[in-house]
């Protein structure tokens, strides 16, 4: 059901390109994209590009989440501190990702370090900000309830603040990863010689539209897989099950 409209779109593409004899330098035929796909799978370049991109995203996101969540929770513990710091994090989450590319390449040089840094801070500020918001949304009575049932500082953190902020954290990860994914493609166009963004950008130099379109499909499918198979189920299992209000 979900796939049918997409298949129809491919069918239209298969008919339109030969029908109007569109120049392959402008838009490739389905067959050419298929050939490019098979070729890149056979000679291993696809695996190399996808692997490089996923490694960067994975590493940057992991570092981002691991550092942002504890920080966000620590900041959210005191309402005064949270209110004071909110504008700062708002400012930096606005800058998250792409705007850091120029300075990241200056600090780390072109390559792996700069790209991972861009992804890290796309995730870091958005997740930290959302975690802070999440902790702020936990009703005071729920914290009091835990304290009066004998929860200490550590238990308050693990049993109340972390699960209470989790829906916001997951939303933050989803947003941050969205920025990171775009930042990745942009950074790879500028600052490296391997990865999906690089694959697209180099193909442009030789007018290889079939490689570009294939790369775009790969990027789309990968993101759909990440979003639908990991992020959406995660959101559902927390927010919907617990009946907590979803924040846009």
């Amino acid at each position: 059901m979900f796939v049918a409209p997409l298949l129809a779109l491919v069918a239209v593409w298969a008919v339109v390109v030969p029908l109007f004899q569109i120049n392959p330098r402008v838009f490739p035929s389905v067959g050419a994209v298929g050939t490019a796909a098979l070729e890149s799978i056979r000679d291993g370049t696809l695996i190399a590009h996808v692997g490089a991109s996923l490694l960067r995203v994975g590493l940057g996101t992991l570092i981002g989440i691991v550092t942002a969540v504890p920080l966000g929770i620590a900041m959210g513990v005191s309402a005064g501190v949270a209110a004071f710091l909110t504008p700062l994090f708002r400012f930096f989450s606005v800058l998250a990702g792409i705007a850091w590319i120029p300075i990241a390449t200056l600090w780390f040089g072109y390559g792996f370090g700069a790209i991972v840094f861009v992804i890290f801070n796309a995730v870091f500020f958005v997740v930290a900000y959302n975690t802070l918001l999440g902790v702020k949304t936990i009703p005071h009575t729920v914290r009091n309830a835990a304290a009066s049932l004998g929860a200490g500082r550590w238990a308050l953190l693990t049993e109340v603040l972390l699960p209470g902020a989790l829906p916001n954290i997951v939303t933050g990860i989803r947003t941050g990863l969205g920025f990171a994914w775009r930042g990745l493609i942009a950074a790879e166009m500028i600052a490296t010689n391997v990865g999906l963004g690089y694959m697209l950008f180099v193909a442009r130099d030789f007018y290889r539209t079939e490689v570009i379109v294939f790369g775009m499909i790969v990027i789309g499918v990968l993101w759909l897989l990440i979003d639908r198979l990991v992020l959406v189920p995660l959101e559902r299992s927390t927010i919907e099950r617990w009946g907590m209000v979803r924040r846009a």
């Binding site: 330098r25 402008v26 493609i185 963004g197 697209l200 950008f201 570009i212 379109v213 499909i217 789309g220």
Partner: peptide, 16 residues
């Protein structure tokens, strides 16, 4: 699907 492709991935083909 088109949202998943993302804006920036369109850049190379748009440049062409």
């Amino acid at each position: 699907f088109f949202q998943a492709i993302g804006d920036i991935a369109w850049l190379p083909i748009l440049l062409i």
